[in-house]
Design a protein around this nucleic acid. Structure first.
Lengths: 146, 146
DNA sequence: TAATATTATATCAAGTTAGTAGGATTAATA
DNA sequence: TATTAATCCTACTAACTTGATATAATATTA
């Protein structure tokens, strides 16, 4: 399962993306209220996203958050990795967080490893294509009301 | 990530499958030693698999475990579900363990839900095809030694 | 009846998750 | 310059999960 932290992160980014035309930073308070996310919890998430160059933060009065990059250059893979770590179902098949399985003698001969590699690759492919741009444009389909 | 419990379960079933031609139940001790699984921990796993009709257990002297069904009728999906619960990355897209997401207002309009459904379906498909029969036959490829 | 297997229940340490609390820092504005 | 309103930072916590271990009961058979 994806953690709530991660899902909140995705929702927050989508919210900022949908409101960035207003040319002003978005407050954490606003996101928290509109997306039903505990405010203090959200603040930590937003800071984390800023530290990973997904968001830019502006401090002080009238501060808030804006996207650090165009929506076409932010995808779900990156967000999930920042928030939850490995996407792979086994340490030995993780690309970004590789670790050998303790109890395995030969990785090459491990039959289940091949299956987990398949799952990793298809999952990665789907999440890579799920950019914020695509997600927000889908959002509009048959749904003009905010 | 798949839990160790689940991975141990898969390894244990594969071990039993590879040795079932001996027409005798396989001891938990033997599996534990050969697959480097803590014995007591493994016992709990094997009991769980028996309770879910994956294994048959025989008590007493010369007891042990055998498969409850042909290897073609046991796949990774079933094992993962027994051990770890939902495969889906969000409660709202789980087929066997569905639950609405607390903070979501409209499931239909949730853009990320669609992505998680895609991931679920491809993952399910791969694990469904990964039967014990296929896994054990792959095992033999270019590797005759036990 | 002794040996050997599974079964059952309880316990536990460490780590993770989903928060909360309280204040420090920064910047615009009245 | 004082106030206000935003982000930033650190620490803490309750509940849950994971990966085991311990002890003993029960069943089978040589």
């Amino acid at each position: 399962m994806i953690s709530k932290r991660c899902k909140y992160a995705i929702k927050a980014i989508l919210y900022i993306a949908r409101h960035q035309d207003q040319k002003r930073p978005i407050f954490s308070t606003e996101i928290a209220e509109k997306e039903s996310i505990p405010k203090k919890f959200l603040e930590g998430i937003l800071r984390d996203l800023r530290n990973h160059s997904i968001l830019i933060s502006q401090r002080g009065r009238n501060g808030g958050y804006t996207l650090h990059r165009p929506t076409s250059e932010i995808n779900l893979i990156e967000i999930i990795r920042i928030m939850d770590g490995p996407i792979a179902l086994q340490p030995c098949v993780s690309l970004k967080y590789y670790a050998p399985c303790e109890e395995c003698i030969s990785e090459k001969d491990c039959v289940i490893r091949k299956v987990f590699i398949q799952v990793r690759d298809t999952t990665l492919d789907i999440f890579k294509n799920a950019t914020i741009e695509r997600l927000t444009s889908d959002y509009g389909e048959g749904n003009t009301a905010e």
